[in-house]
Design a protein around this nucleic acid. Structure first.
Lengths: 220, 220
DNA sequence: AAATAAAATTAGATTAATCTAAAAAATATT
DNA sequence: AATATTTTTTAGATTAATCTAATTTTATTT
């Protein structure tokens, strides 16, 4: 298999994520938005990725990731998430500081390095945001995740991930006291604006907006 | 200060190393050889680095690294060597496996990452090859060189120089398998005649005389 | 179904990094 | 000093990745 450039790996990751986030065919514009680039650049890159058989691309019809592409994307994601674990567990970064650095580290090419890093970290199964880490074969198990917004009153769960990983949002969560692994119980839901009252770890009462409730994922 | 590309950082490193390895003006060809590229590419890159004031470049006259360039080069070298320590100390790589990987890792841009890595590693002063690690300000101390004769039993080091440079002596070293950069470990010392048993690169057992031991300089 | 709007692609430029081949400058040799 | 050789630079191409502007295709709306 040919080696992919940093740019190709990034586009492939975007296609993978958008594929998983629903629609059958990923649109050019959705990729452009995700990658903060222009549609023309995306068209060009899709042509190249298609030549390398990483995606199945039909002009004007959108794009689908191929098996080959999925394998490649999952290896990049594996690297990204392992590095995030390293940064948080070993280098004492906060979970909201690691994404940008992992974006760089994920492109380092050395299978042995990743194997050793995985050993060093004790074969973690989830990254600091609760996302699963694919193994060498790209296999992983999802924790079933539900947005807090969908939990009924008196239902409880454990915070396992966030949908939106932008730094401002994570800092907000930190500030109000929501963290990975926190135990949640929905105590009240307000119909008209989607906000809710919850209990963190059975003691801290919190009021959260619809936006927060939709972006905090819990298992239950 | 502007951000340098990977390629620019690599050329700058080469200029820095060649500057230190002797001559006042580094030649285009020597850079081309060091970097395994063509002279035309070097000329082009020197023009660019010169525009960024990283080097002082006069056509046909060779090039000299500037203060600005030296600072930038030393930061890359600092990163390279810290990563090498990480790979050997934490990920259990052998010292001969780490260079290629560190060549990639050295280009990761995050001052905070390097600060944290340095903390995590306990502020090492030398990399696994015995080369000094510059601090945040680019300052470093060369490792003191000690004759093998003064190393204690079980102490290891790296051959960095010879005291006696006459050809017969050097030929003798060649014959018995001692070379610049060889990893040494003293396994036994004989009191009455100053001879010793050493291990080269962890595998070749050698008996050397007092004369040899006094003239081979190692860092440790 | 024709007109309009939106989405996607192509055309044409630009920048970085590289190359080969040709030209220019510096060095070495007769 | 004139010539030959080596070194270095420039000229001109190429590839990857990007952009803006123009065009084409698809979708939507009257």
């Amino acid at each position: 298999m040919k080696i992919l450039s940093f740019a190709e790996e990034n586009y492939l990751k975007a296609v993978y994520h958008l594929s998983n986030a629903g629609e059958l065919d990923v649109t050019t514009n959705s990729i452009a938005e995700e990658m903060d680039t222009k549609a023309a650049s995306v068209s060009d890159m899709l042509r190249r990725l298609s030549e390398k058989e990483m995606v199945v691309y039909k002009k004007y019809q959108g794009v689908k990731i191929s098996e080959k592409g999925k394998t490649a994307a999952l290896q990049v994601i594996r690297k990204h998430r392992l590095w995030e674990v390293f940064l948080v567990e070993k280098l004492k970064f906060n979970w909201d500081q690691v994404h940008e650095i992992a974006e760089q580290l994920e492109h380092i090419k050395s299978p042995l390095l990743i194997q050793r890093l995985d050993d060093f970290l004790g074969h973690p199964k989830f990254d600091p945001h609760g996302d699963p880490i694919p193994d060498e074969n790209g296999l992983f198990k999802e924790k079933p995740q539900v947005p807090l917004a969908e939990v009924e009153v008196s239902g409880d769960g454990i915070v396992v991930a966030v949908k939106d990983t932008n730094s401002m949002f994570l800092q907000h969560l930190d500030r109000i006291g929501i963290y990975l692994g926190a135990k949640t119980k929905v105590t009240e839901k307000v119909e008209f604006d989607g906000s809710m009252e919850i209990l963190i770890d059975g003691k801290n009462k919190l009021f959260i907006s619809k936006e927060v409730a939709e972006n905090v994922l819990v298992t239950h």
